[in-house]
Every structure is written in structure tokens, then in C-alpha cells.
Simulated assay, not measured.
Amino acid sequence: MSKSADILCIGSVLWDVIGRSPSVMRAGSDVPGRITRIPGGVALNIAMTLARFGLTPALLSSIGRDAEGDELVTECERLGCLTNHLYRSDDLPTDVYMAIEGANGLIAAIADAHSLEAAGARILNPLTDGALGSAAAPYPGVIALDGNLTESLLDDVARNPAFGHADLRIAPASPGKAERLLPFLRAGRGTLYVNLEEAGLLSQTSFETAQDAAMALLERGAARAIVTDGSRTCCDADADGLYQGTPPDVLVTRITGAGDTFMAAHIAAEIAGSSRDQALEKALRAAASYVSGEIAQ
């Protein structure tokens, strides 16, 4: 008997190519370090963390029918993710993300998610054709959604009756894609997971604290906003209240994927019945363990 999903993860599923060096780097630096290739993408990073918490996530994304795609699907299944609803394309290659990290943080990154964008609404077919839901019988569970989808497709999700009963949890994927979440402000739907910079881009201003940012997002129409600020206090705010938490002090050894780990741990905690403040604390601990290297990739 096949497993059923506890949560859907929609967005980028790709290969992460990460170069890390213990040296402080600047533009043009040429230093020794390590280069790894691991399964990644925002949706998959979230799904992998959810699986570590004992949940069964299903992936909705685009993966090519190339050798890289076949290998990636095998890895996704090994990591506890359901892949039977993936859109597999003969014409679109498997996407790739490449990043360089030094002792002074993320130096540069390029996200090649063109196949996901080209696949468009086809990745959402299981939610409209009856496989997982439809406009007449909307999917009723939790959906983790990332901003690697186009703004027009995200706008459709924000307004489409097929998503009307879902608990939407949305992340922008990167500051450069933060404004793609504007449809959810306009629709007053979902929980937004953003960092301080992303909150500023959505609000067209800058903020000193996560609390200020979260309150501003609510004023602009957000139903709920969870704003992180690196090692400083983060905030979870909606019409019912405001909750704050401070990350544990740890030695940072990596950055890429930390926000996805925070989001997944927070969702898992709330699915398990944790209170708002408990869920925030658990998510901050999980993210701290990740950036310190305690959680293996």
C-alpha cells in the first residue's frame, strides 16, 4: 500500500553545487575549499527536513528526464519524499543552483530554475485534475510553496479555488524573488516566511527589527508573517498576536539552506501540535543546529 502525503512541497527541486572555503573571500578570490553536489532547491530542502521530523512530504516540481533528473528522483525517494506527482519533462533539463560561501558568508549564487518556470502550471496539475484536489474538492492540508515559481503562477495560487482550503506556507526563495510574494499580500492569504531584507523588499522600505518588519507586512495585507534576522530576534505575527524568539549562539559553518530548515522545522512543530512560541523556539534550534554543521547534509 502506497504512502499518502502529510504535506505538499511545491517549487524548486534541483541539484545544489556548493563551493565552501574557510577563507574570507571577495570578488575575484581564488582559494582552496570543498565543492559538493547535493539534492537541493527550496521545496526539496523543506521536504528533506520535514522527512527528518517523521513526516511524509510529496514533491510538486519539474525534473528533466535526463540522467541528472533520474539520479535526483532516486535521491528524493531515498530521503523519504514522494515523487509520483512530479512533472517529468523530455524537453526541459534538470535545474541547478550554484553558490560560493566563504568565512564571511555567501559570496555569490546563481539559481538556474528556468525549467521550473517553463513548466509553469503543469506542476500544479495534481491539485486541479483530482489526483490531489480540484476546484470542487480543494486540497485541505498544508502546502509549502516557494517563490521560484513565476509571479503570475503564484498569483493564480493565491486566488485559485483549488487552493482555497489549504494552509499555505510561503517562502520567497531569495531576496531577488521576494516581490513575487506580493499576490499573497493582496489576497491576504498564507503564512509568509521571510528574512529582514525580503520583508523590506515586499514593503518597499527597510527595517531595524524583525518585529517592525512583521507588523508592516500585516499592515500591507499579510495574513501572517514570520520574519527572521540572522542571529538576532525573529518574530511571528498575525491578527491574534506577536511572538518573538532569539536564535541560540553557535559557530556558523554554512548558510545555504538555513532558512529552509527553519521553515520546515516550524511547520513540523505546528503540525505536531506545538504552540506558537514553542514552534518558534524549535525552528530556531533546528536552524542553529543546521548552520553549525550538527545536522548532516
Rank of each mutant, 00 (worst) to 15 (best):
P138A: 09
I7L: 14
D240N: 14
L185S: 06
Q211A: 15
H266R: 13
G28K: 08
P161Y: 03
L196M: 08
F53Q: 14
G64I: 11
D167H: 11
L185F: 03
N84R: 15
V31A: 15
R159I: 05
F207H: 14
R220W: 02
L154G: 04
G245F: 02
A51C: 10
E101I: 07
I271T: 08
D90G: 12
D66R: 09
A67W: 00
A51R: 01
R34C: 14
V157F: 00
V73R: 11
F207G: 10
L145N: 02
L149R: 11
R276H: 13
R34V: 15
A283P: 00
A119D: 08
G80Y: 01
A173I: 12
A171G: 15
E294I: 03
A118W: 01
S89W: 00
T256P: 08
G105Q: 09
L168W: 01
P22I: 12
A199N: 06
S23Q: 15
V42T: 12
M263H: 11
S134C: 10
A178E: 08
N125K: 15
A216Q: 13
A111P: 05
G221N: 07
A51K: 02
T128K: 10
L106R: 10
R276W: 04
P140S: 09
K3F: 09
R20P: 09
I38L: 15
A178M: 07
P126I: 12
V73S: 06
M1T: 15
A5I: 05
S115P: 07
L124G: 06
E151Y: 04
L218E: 07
G80I: 10
G19S: 14
E71I: 10
A51I: 09
A173C: 13
T150Q: 08
E219T: 14
A171N: 12
V250Q: 06
P175E: 08
L116A: 05
P138L: 08
L124S: 08
L196Y: 01
L182H: 10
D129H: 05
A210G: 02
L72C: 07
R232E: 14
A296C: 06
L251V: 14
A43L: 03
M1I: 12
I63W: 00
I35K: 11
P126S: 08
P248S: 10
A213S: 07
G40A: 10
R232H: 14
A27L: 13
L79P: 05
A265I: 10
R276T: 12
L185D: 04
Y243W: 15
E71V: 07
T83Y: 04
R88N: 08
A222M: 07
T205P: 07
T128H: 12
S275M: 03
G80F: 05
A216P: 05
M1F: 12
G133I: 04
A288Q: 05
R220Y: 04
S174L: 10
A268R: 06
S4A: 14
L217F: 02
G230T: 03
L72F: 01
A162N: 11
P175Y: 07
R52K: 12
D129W: 03
H165M: 14
L127F: 02
L201A: 12
K3M: 14
D167R: 11
H165N: 13
I46S: 02
Q244C: 15
